[in-house]
């Protein structure tokens, strides 16, 4: 097996939260709490979880928009965690991001041409003429007309803006792109266009994706492997087919059963979870899922399960992990 492109080791991101009288008490939000994962070149790892589970924070730690509290982010074996901005600069070309809302992630006062030229300027690549050529080539790659370069983001629809966001992310020929909910703000018919574009670009440039989303059907479709996250920890990870057909963790099982199926003949046998996701500020003791878990027993409150192999290439963190 080839060496992984990215390896995350025991990554932690704890945010300080002030609370109490005059905000004097300092408590911690355990947004990401000990995550291990690997991504191979040209591979898509899907990361699924509900709001507040830490999936976006994890993505931002890897792209070093956040400085992680602890742990290692090894890109081709080099630890990016703890590097200074200057040290990081050469690696930033290789790890790019696509955000959920392209309207908020594109500068409204710059033309699309300026937005797409900026990565080349920052990294001092080419001259004015070659940069213009690169911009028009990028627009062509993502399926936008060449005249778009002189227009502003507001003149485009949501799907086209996401294409601009993708063009910016692939400008410097990165090897890894962190896609943070890239299609959840888009309409159904546009969503499939963008997913196809991402899959085409992956083949063309041998890109690796960390694809973060809450929609398991979308993630399953685009990913080679899928990791399920709950309250700052990965609870299960397997190939996308395996995780759908043989989920071992009760959370994954309920997550899959909760998805509404677009087939009126399908009768859902739903595992309804009780209550809401607990706050990551004071996560439950033992297994963080025990407060909502249909299988929880007394021991789950005290003993935190660790990720263990349950089948080939399939890990899950549950004392009672079993296939359905």
């Amino acid at each position: 097996m080839s060496a992984p492109l990215l390896e995350v080791r025991d990554l932690k991101m704890h945010f300080p939260v002030k609370s109490g009288f005059f905000s004097l008490t300092k408590v911690w939000n355990f947004a990401v709490d000990g995550v291990n994962l690997t991504i191979n070149p040209g591979e898509t790892l899907g990361l699924v979880g509900e709001s507040g589970c830490g999936k976006s924070t994890l993505g931002r730690c890897i792209s070093r928009l956040y400085e992680p509290t602890a742990g290692e982010v090894l890109f081709k074996g080099i630890n990016l965690a703890g590097m200074s901005h200057r040290q990081l600069l050469p690696y930033r070309q290789n790890i790019q991001m696509i955000f959920q809302d392209p309207m908020e992630s594109l500068n409204a006062r710059h033309t699309v041409g300026e937005i797409l030229e900026e990565p080349f300027l920052i990294h001092g690549i080419g001259n004015a003429q070659s940069r213009r050529q690169s911009v028009s080539k990028l627009l062509d790659t993502v399926g936008l007309p060449g005249r778009s370069a002189s227009r502003y983001p507001f003149e485009f629809s949501g799907g086209q803006r996401q294409r601009i966001g993708i063009a910016r992310a692939i400008a410097l020929k990165p090897e890894l792109i962190i896609c943070d909910e890239p299609v959840s703000a888009l309409d159904v018919s546009i969503q499939s266009q963008i997913l196809n574009l991402l899959m085409d670009l992956q083949k063309e440039f041998n890109l690796a994706y960390l694809f973060i989303a809450h929609d398991l059907a979308v993630v399953k479709h685009i990913s080679d492997r899928v990791a399920i996250m709950y309250l700052g920890k990965i609870v299960e990870q397997a190939s996308s087919n395996e995780i759908y057909h043989r989920p071992f963790h009760p959370y994954t099982q309920s997550l899959i059963s909760a998805i509404p199926i677009p087939d009126p003949h399908h009768t859902a046998t739903r595992i309804l979870l009780k209550g809401d996701v607990p706050s990551p500020i004071s996560p439950p003791s033992g297994c963080a899922f025990h407060t909502r878990c249909p299988k929880a027993s007394a021991s789950c409150q005290h003993k935190a399960p660790i990720l263990e192999p349950v089948a080939p290439e399939h890990i899950a963190a549950c004392h009672f992990a079993e296939a359905p």
């Binding site: 898509t44 629809s157 799907g159 086209q160 159904v188 018919s189 546009i190 969503q191 499939s192 266009q193 997913l195 196809n196 899959m199 085409d200 398991l216 059907a217 979308v218 399953k220 479709h221 685009i222 990913s223 080679d224 996308s240 087919n241 759908y244 899959i256 998805i259 199926i261 677009p262």
Partner: peptide, 23 residues
């Protein structure tokens, strides 16, 4: 087109989705 373009859990992963072109 709408029914064909949504990713389904029963799909084979990484296959191109049917799309409705344009907007």
């Amino acid at each position: 087109g709408l029914l064909r373009s949504i990713p389904k859990l029963t799909d084979i992963p990484k296959q191109p989705l049917d799309i409705i072109p344009g907007m």
